Simulated assay, not measured.
Amino acid sequence: MTTFGEINEPSSRTAWEDWDEVLYTENCTDLRLEKEVEVPKQIDTFIILEGKYLYDCVRAHHELDLVNASPEVGLRIFKTKKLNNYVCMIRDYNLIQSSEIVELLKKYINMSIDVIGILTKPLVDYQVSERITNDYVIRCLSASKPTRDLDKTFPHLEQPNIISGICAGVLCWREVTDKPAVVIVCYMEHPEEQIILELNNLLEKFKVISQVEKAHRDNLLNSNLYI
């Protein structure tokens, strides 16, 4: 039993769980970007693509120029060829390192007029009272200041749903610094075989991919590996 402002330690060793002594920093390394690259004094939109689904959506296109990377966490930063937008792609990472990764990106975050985060989560994680009949659900969280020109607005993410990780950290930082930001969350049922047009249209708008009509996903379910 604890009260606000008070910490009560267990009186017996048996009250500790097995994982209480695990040092989570054992497998973590000091993160840094590969190159010392000057960050532009102004970026129109900084886009964060978090997750394997988004990584696979973008990798087949050639609209991005690699600027920097952090191989320890599989993070890469690109500039779009046609607009003054920057894109951060990260496929998988240790959630405990979220704060460190946000620190790596802070210069880009601070120099951007707008920040848009996009992440995907399993549909089973979406908590809602009514029955879900679609294969995916798209929701958003935004800072107090709205972003400029999103063509499509998505419903606000309902409680008790929450987000964590890099996008959540970036959104919090933009809110603290009184700057616009939005995070778009896509809950999906079959990420290995789905093409979400709303997300692809958004990526095309900011010139992350070329044309939605050419979107193609290489996946195991569509292959003849087991035939």
Rank of each mutant, 00 (worst) to 15 (best):
K79T: 09
L66W: 05
R91T: 12
L75F: 06
D92S: 11
S144C: 03
Y53T: 15
M1S: 06
E34T: 14
I162H: 11
I132W: 08
K106S: 13
D178L: 10
H156N: 04
Q97C: 05
R32C: 10
I90D: 00
Y126D: 10
N134Q: 15
M111D: 13
L221N: 14
K82I: 02
E17M: 12
R174T: 04
K79V: 08
G74V: 12
R91K: 15
K41Q: 06
R131F: 14
L171V: 03
E34K: 08
S144K: 09
R139Q: 15
Q97I: 01
V102C: 12
V39R: 06
L123T: 13
R174W: 03
S112F: 03
K81L: 15
D30R: 08
V208T: 01
V37D: 06
C167V: 06
E100P: 04
Y86C: 03
N94C: 07
L221C: 14
L31E: 08
K214P: 04
E34G: 00
V128K: 15
L75D: 06
I227H: 11
E103Q: 08
L202Y: 06
W173S: 01
E21T: 15
L64W: 03
Q194I: 11
I163Q: 00
W16T: 09
I48C: 05
D114E: 10
K214C: 07
Q127D: 06
L54A: 00
P40V: 07
V22R: 10
K81R: 15
L150H: 05
Q211T: 08
I132G: 08
L171I: 05
Q211W: 11
E17F: 10
E100Q: 13
I113L: 07
T177W: 02
K79W: 02
Q42H: 00
F78I: 00
H156K: 11
F78T: 05
V212T: 12
D20W: 14
E72C: 01
V176Y: 13
L199K: 09
G169I: 05
N85M: 01
S210I: 04
V182H: 02
G117T: 05
P180C: 09
I132E: 12
D20L: 09
T14G: 04
D30V: 10
I43R: 03
L49C: 04
E26Q: 15
L95T: 11
N224W: 11
I48Y: 03
W173A: 02
D30L: 06
S12D: 07
I166S: 04
Y226Q: 13
K41E: 07
D149I: 02
Q159G: 06
I138C: 09
P191M: 09
K52S: 06
C167N: 12
F4Q: 05
T133D: 15
E192L: 09
K107N: 07
S223T: 11
M89T: 10
P155Y: 13
D151K: 13
L104V: 01
T14F: 08
